[in-house]
């Protein structure tokens, strides 16, 4: 059974069809790239999977559960986490709190116990704080735990976003253009890092990128989106020489 299965997914924004009869499956432990030119509908697909938008038509199954109609936090609880194309950290909050917030579902105590700092509160807070610090130290962010996240340099903010997503204990990680705004050297490091995360945390990853050559190296399979529909799908080498893809990108990457 595939981990995630998207069937006939369609989403319209007041007439504009951002996702058009999109079909997609991913199995456990795969790393699949979704590429496509600006405005192709890539981010919208992520927003539909994670419940930010409700699909106009179609269905999304994750480990056998229908996701359409569920709220984002319910979907997160099922095991899907994501990062954002434009970094969306909790800017004024500390690096530690950014990660601990993502463990909302893992800390088990009642509002009453929270108000009085009694019962399970202490043990649970210690547990999630230790876990958060552990995660931060894996990302070499533990020294910055008490910093406000807005004060981190850009590259570290991107890393923190991935750490925060991982803090929800996901099975499926959705990365939306994690390399945006980075230089080629940083991008190379990031792609290696993503491969490492996949192994270490045993997560399945869908990676959005609009520059094709960045993901050639690490993705096993690519899906090319244009005007909300899949125009090509396959191994990176096949995609590279696909005529339709060249057309979609004409005047952009391939001309260079």
């Amino acid at each position: 059974m595939p981990l995630l299965e998207i069937k006939n997914l369609t989403h319209r924004f007041e007439g504009l069809c951002a996702v058009d009869d999109f079909n997609f499956t991913i199995a456990s432990n795969e790393l699949v790239g979704i590429i496509g030119p600006n405005g192709a509908g890539k981010t919208t697909v992520f927003n539909l999977i994670t419940g930010v938008y409700r699909a106009t038509e179609g269905s999304i199954y994750f480990t056998g559960n229908e996701l359409v109609g569920r709220t984002p936090h319910q979907i997160t609880k099922l095991g899907i986490a994501r990062t954002f194309q434009n970094i969306r950290l909790f800017k004024e909050l500390t690096v530690l709190d950014n990660v601990r917030i993502a463990r909302y579902g893992q800390a088990i105590y009642s509002p009453m116990e929270a108000l009085l700092h009694m019962g399970r509160y202490n043990a649970e807070e210690k547990r999630i704080t230790d876990h958060a610090m552990e995660l931060l130290s894996i990302f070499k962010l533990d020294d910055a735990a008490n910093e406000r996240s807005k004060n981190l340099p850009y590259g570290l903010q991107r890393k923190l976003e991935i750490a925060r997503a991982l803090a929800t204990d996901p099975q499926l990680l959705l990365l939306d253009e994690p390399a945006a705004g980075m230089n080629p050297n940083e991008i190379k490091q990031l792609m290696e890092f993503i491969g490492w995360i996949r192994k270490t945390f045993q997560v399945t990853i869908i990676l959005i990128e609009h520059q094709m050559r960045l993901v050639m190296g690490i993705c096993e399979r690519l899906v090319v989106l244009d005007f909300g529909a899949t125009i090509a799908e396959g191994l990176p080498a096949q995609i590279q020489n696909n005529v339709k893809v060249m057309e979609a990108y004409l005047g952009k990457e391939l001309v260079k």
């Binding site: 994670t50 930010v52 709220t71 984002p72 936090h73 997160t76 986490a81 994501r82 954002f84 969306r88 950290l89 909790f90 800017k91 004024e92 909050l93 709190d97 601990r100 917030i101 993502a102 463990r103 909302y104 800390a107 105590y109 509002p111 929270a114 108000l115 700092h117 509160y121 807070e125 999630i128 925060r164 997503a165 803090a167 929800t168």
Partner: peptide
């Protein structure tokens, strides 16, 4: 507490908070 951090995260970015 986790609820308080939830409150703060709503102020910072409600959708991101829900997604976490």
């Amino acid at each position: 507490s986790k609820f308080g951090r939830g409150v703060l995260s709503i102020r910072e970015d409600e959708i991101a908070s829900d997604l976490m």
